[in-house]
Design a protein around this nucleic acid. Structure first.
Length: 216
DNA sequence: CAATAGATCATCT
DNA sequence: GATGATCTATTGC
């Protein structure tokens, strides 16, 4: 086992306070760490993200929650970068976003898939029935469940505290840019980024093709 | 294998 | 009152 994930350097505020697409791309390979007050620490390497911006090539990003303006739910997206925006969808799932851009400019990055790094047994307990380790944190709703990230983390400062993002080993994989998934507008824009061959990356329903599990 | 239905509720109209 | 940055089980071929 190499260096403990909790010993890795935390990404500083300046990392986040840049344009959202840059932050999205550079989040690939970094490590989300959750150290709850009690219970097992879990960590996962970011392998898939989506950027939600104010404009793309001059057009409004109508899929971005911040597009409707400042509301109680979206207020954190308008604040300084490096905070967690966690929201609840479909009466069932929590999704983790990272706020980008300096205060006053809305922008955030949806974390869509992680490669489990630590606390795998805890993740398995929270995701009963999932047999493949590489799918424990595959999908925005699945990774929050596996890592026990909830709306209680809304607004959490990711540069300190129990939920942090830390520098991962330099990613050597190639990055693919593709359309975002599950939205009505702006689905053709290449604002989804993932490590090309990574098995945890999700696919649009239409193209899902799960290979057989070859692990023992 | 592919397509669809149902779960279930915060948010905004 | 409708909708949604989802996921899984179930149906049908």
């Amino acid at each position: 086992m190499s260096q403990a994930t909790t010993a890795r350097p935390i990404l500083p505020r300046a990392f986040y306070e840049r344009d959202t697409v840059t932050v999205a791309r550079e989040l690939l390979g970094q490590i989300v760490v959750h150290e709850p007050a009690r219970g097992e620490t879990t960590a996962g390497r970011i392998v898939e993200v989506e950027a939600y911006v104010t404009q793309y090539l001059g057009e409004r990003d109508r899929a971005a929650h911040s597009d409707r303006g400042l509301t109680p739910r979206t207020r954190i997206i308008f604040g300084p970068g490096g905070h967690a925006y966690v929201y609840f969808v479909y009466g069932m799932h929590e999704c983790l976003n990272v706020v980008a851009e300096p205060a006053g400019i809305p922008g955030c990055v949806l974390i869509r898939a992680l490669q489990p790094v630590a606390g795998i047994e805890a993740m398995q307990r929270r995701r009963p029935g999932e047999k493949r380790l590489d799918r424990l944190c595959s999908g925005p709703g699945n990774l929050t469940r596996a890592m026990e990230i909830t709306r209680r983390h809304y607004g959490a400062d990711l540069t300190s505290g129990r939920l942090t993002i830390r520098a991962g080993p330099p990613a050597i994989e190639t990055v693919t840019a593709a359309g975002r998934i599950g939205i009505r507008h702006g689905g053709e824009w290449p604002l989804r980024f993932y490590l090309t061959e990574n098995v945890a990356v999700t696919r649009p329903l239409k193209f899902r093709r799960y290979e057989a599990d070859l692990s023992p």
